[in-house]
Amino acid sequence: MYSPVKLWRNQKNVQALLGKTGVIVSWTVVRVPPEGFSNQAPYPVVVVDLEDKKRMSVQMVDWEPKHCRIGQRVRVILRRISETSSEGIIPYGVKVKPI
């Protein structure tokens, strides 16, 4: 599913985002997940306005229901993205956690 080359190319984007903070502008809790995400569901996916005004869709981790609200502040962290097959590369990327 994940091309190692694509993930490698994406690393500079990941580094640029780590540690940034932002505010949730909309959110949902995904209860029927796509392939690879079933052991994480249910999980929130939020749209965040980052401090540099960039807007992104990102999964929220380390969350409680009270964090699912417009206006909640979050920080960008590095996490494993999803499950892969035994031969596949383990994909890491950005998620956010509430602060």
Partner: peptide
Amino acid sequence: GTNEERLSGLTFPGAYAILAKAHME
């Protein structure tokens, strides 16, 4: 959708749910 959305675990209902939450607000 976008690669960013796929990596976030977003689904199609999820994308429209985000629009719905914003509209409800």
